[in-house]
């Protein structure tokens, strides 16, 4: 059943991606990119990457849509095409093929003998419940084993937020 759900979401993603490249109405493209992020967030959740899915929903469907709309308010809402974009298409195809080629070296999905399952993961799985006291292993890794790392990320995010507020802020001194 999960397979059916994942396959349907992949079909949705494909349809949306083609539609985004084909449409000339930029507001429609903004809406479709929001839908794309939501569908991929659902797909990530089904694939058990809950944290990635949440980031995708927050950044893709939340902030990106708002930023795209903010950009759209400064430009013309209709895309103007002058020529067929053959060079970008070639670059995208090459990059995609390189990425697919790169995944060939990776261990198979769910392979129990993959390096990531053999190195520190068994220790986390067996000891983190008793050592940290958090039932979710991912949470205990992020919040405790890599606590300083997460703290640094929070600093980065806060700095980025301050930067965005300075850029977008409604300064009273503005003419």
């Amino acid at each position: 059943m999960t397979l059916v759900l994942e396959a349907s979401l992949f079909v949705f993603l494909l349809v949306i991606a083609v539609a985004i490249t084909r449409t000339k109405d930029l507001f429609a493209a903004a809406m479709l990119s929001g839908i794309f992020s939501l569908a991929s967030a659902g797909l990530f959740t089904l694939l058990d990457a809950v944290d990635v899915a949440f980031t995708e929903a927050a950044v893709g469907a939340g902030i990106s849509t708002i930023v795209i709309l903010g950009t759209l308010s400064l430009t013309d809402p209709v895309e103007i095409r002058t020529r067929r974009p053959l060079l970008p298409l070639g670059v995208v195809l090459l990059t995609g093929m390189a990425l697919v080629w790169g995944t060939l070296d990776m261990p198979a999905f769910g392979d129990a003998s993959a390096p990531i399952h053999l190195h520190v993961a068994p220790r986390y799985l067996s000891e983190s419940g008793a050592a940290i006291g958090i039932p979710n292993v991912v949470t205990s890794i992020l919040a405790s084993y890599r606590g300083y790392d997460t703290l640094g990320e929070l600093f980065v995010v806060t700095t980025a937020g301050i930067g965005v507020m300075l850029l977008l802020g409604r300064g009273e001194s503005r003419p």
Binding site: M31, G34, L38, A41, F54, A57, A58, A61, G62, T65, I66, L69
Partner: peptide, 14 residues
């Protein structure tokens, strides 16, 4: 539930 909150905010912006 968290997804609902996010989509509400982006809907307000839209």
């Amino acid at each position: 539930l968290l997804y609902t909150l996010i989509s509400f905010i982006s809907l307000l912006a839209v």
